[in-house]
Computed example of a mutant assay.
Amino acid sequence: MDKQKRKPNWSTDELEALAQGVSANIKTIRGKFSPGLTNSQKTQCWQQIAERVNSVNISEITRDVVDCKKKWQDISSATKKKEAARLKEMRGTGGGPAPVEDIKTWERLILGTLSKCSVEGVEGGVDTLECN
């Protein structure tokens, strides 16, 4: 049995290309299917993003559409968590130095694609896990 060799970690350039490609086409990627927006258009959009990512890739490894979609899901989730933690820290009371801002350029692009309530939660909402 041949084990599939693991692909190398994503470089910063690849992450920036992915974030730029998705943020520029977010309406197509997240849009609802309609006569004006078909599945083939979404697939073509993801293929263009994958080509963009591969154009900045210096290694011989190529990223396909599945790799790009998975990575986008992972980094957008991680960025959402990071931003929620940062906002929670900012709202906290007490002294001390301000939290260090360590948001990367590609994370800023991701934050631009997220809605406010997806990061902060629903205004006035109740966490059902905390209810008895």
Rank of each mutant, 00 (worst) to 15 (best):
K70I: 04
A19D: 05
F33I: 10
T93W: 04
P35S: 12
K7W: 01
A17W: 07
V65G: 01
A78G: 06
S11L: 12
E14Q: 13
S40D: 15
Q47E: 15
V66K: 15
S55V: 01
S40L: 11
V100K: 13
T28F: 07
K88N: 13
T28V: 15
D67Y: 00
C131M: 10
R63K: 06
K42T: 07
L37Y: 11
K69H: 03
G112L: 05
S115H: 10
P35H: 09
L129G: 14
T93N: 08
W46R: 03
A78R: 11
K88Q: 15
D102S: 13
A98C: 08
I110W: 03
T105Y: 01
A78L: 10
E107T: 04
Q48Y: 06
E101C: 08
G21C: 11
D64K: 00
E51D: 15
S23Y: 10
S59K: 09
L109M: 11
G94R: 06
E107Y: 00
S118L: 06
S115P: 05
L18M: 14
V22K: 08
W10I: 04
I75P: 02
P99I: 05
E107M: 02
E51W: 02
D64L: 01
T43M: 12
K7P: 04
M90T: 11
K7H: 04
N9D: 14
L18E: 07
S23N: 13
K42C: 09
S59F: 04
G21I: 05
W72P: 03
Q41P: 08
A50Q: 06
I29Y: 12
L114M: 15
Q73S: 14
G125Q: 07
R91T: 04
N57V: 02
Q41E: 15
W106A: 00
N57S: 12
P8S: 14
W46I: 02
K116Y: 03
K32P: 05
K81L: 10
Q20R: 15
K82D: 03
I58K: 15
C45G: 06
K82C: 01
V22M: 14
T43E: 15
K81A: 12
S23V: 12
E130W: 04
R63T: 04
A78M: 07
T113L: 05
E16Q: 14
C117M: 09
K32R: 15
I103M: 06
A24Y: 07
A19T: 06
E51I: 01
A19F: 04
C45R: 07
G121E: 11
L37S: 12
E123I: 05
I75R: 01
T93H: 08
G96L: 05
S23L: 11
I58G: 07
Q47C: 08
I58D: 10
T43R: 14
F33E: 14
L111P: 01
L87K: 06
L37H: 10
D127E: 14
S77P: 00
K80F: 02
N9R: 11
T128E: 14
S23E: 15
D102A: 12
V65C: 02
C68W: 02
Q44W: 09
C131R: 09
K104L: 06
E16M: 14
V53S: 03
D74R: 13
K81F: 11
D67E: 10
E60T: 08
R30S: 13
I61P: 00
T93Y: 04
